[in-house]
Amino acid sequence: MTCLHTISKSPTSKLLSSCVSVLKPGDGILFIEDGVYYCSPAESGRHPGADIRLFALQEDVAARGLSVPSAADVELVDYAGFVGLCCEYEKIVSWF
């Protein structure tokens, strides 16, 4: 069953490495809250391979004064997009 993982703490939490170690091909990751700091260019080396789609919640990105270049490997979604992803993937695992 495909799975959407949400990550809501900053990189200090090392949540992404725990999450990545239990992913299946076809899973997706959505960064929310302080998890959006994983979108920073300094963190891109930790991002998983291309078979895992990455998303970030636009409202949380904007709140923190971050920007995600359109060429980046992370797609921005709003709350409607967040709900859409939860329908598209078959279950949700929250990392907090």
């Binding site: 069953m1 799975c3 170690s21 239990v22 992913l23 299946k24 279950k91 949700i92 695992v93 929250s94 990392w95 907090f96």
Partner: peptide
């Protein structure tokens, strides 16, 4: 192993992770 944990997540209908 982590692979085994990935299986347990994959097989689950619901996962609580806290």
């Amino acid at each position: 192993s982590r692979t085994h944990i990935a299986e347990l997540i994959d097989q689950a209908d619901t996962v609580f992770n806290l």
